[in-house]
Design a protein around this nucleic acid. Structure first.
Lengths: 109, 109
DNA sequence: ACTGGTACATAGTAACGCTGAATAGTGACG
DNA sequence: CGTCACTATTCAGCGTTACTATGTACCAGT
């Protein structure tokens, strides 16, 4: 898509992944595929894995290794209590931003 | 406010400033003050100036130096044609993001 | 002379996502 | 068996962006 999305994803992608995990546990490959499906056409695989490592180290998710029928074992992530808190904080911040931008969009023209 | 906003601003702040300039020409100090008023409580002055230099170098704005009654002359920026194009592209990207996130927010709970 | 408000500028740092590649297991096909 | 394709994770190095922390400069009021 372009560099503009890339920059805008900073800080947002983490929230997106947390939001996905709030619905159901998931593993990296699955999340990447889902994102591509949703139109995030050029999110690099490495990006998602790095993000998952990060949120794991911050204690926002629990991890379970589950054997796959095809290929190496999956690392399945699920949101824990701290992760849910963080996600809510994310939504608050996001709302703040969208409100400001909505105002600008209307008022600016 | 916090690190979360900081990261989310990446890529967005530029759009915000362009949106401001689409309404009327403005100078750095003014923009910073306006942002603080709007709740972006901890946007550093340096950040805005650096951003303005960046968009000037990319040719998105025209610049005019105008003497101020108080203090050094102001550098007044106004959006040019290329800047308007870039702003529209920004709105498109922003819409894409908000749509995806709105879906996640509803579906996730 | 000193303080405070206005106005701009910049060097250094940290965070985040991308690029590109490596590693590794499984199943299918010839 | 060898190789290809798919699944799945990991990592080093890079570019962009925003923050920190200053510094410069001009003017008004005391």
């Amino acid at each position: 898509m372009g560099k503009q999305v890339t920059e805008m994803l900073k800080g947002t992608l983490e929230g997106i992944v947390l939001a996905i995990l709030s619905g159901r546990p998931a593993y990296g490959y699955e999340i990447t595929a889902w994102l591509r499906d949703q139109g995030f056409s050029d999110i690099a695989e490495g990006t998602v894995y790095a993000l998952l490592v990060r949120i794991e180290q911050r204690g926002l998710v629990d991890v379970e290794k589950i054997p796959s029928e095809k290929g190496p074992p999956r690392k399945v992530y699920s949101l824990n209590a701290q992760g849910r808190e963080h996600l809510e904080e994310f939504w608050r911040t996001w709302s703040f931003l969208t409100e400001r931008l909505e105002q600008l969009r209307e008022g600016g023209n």
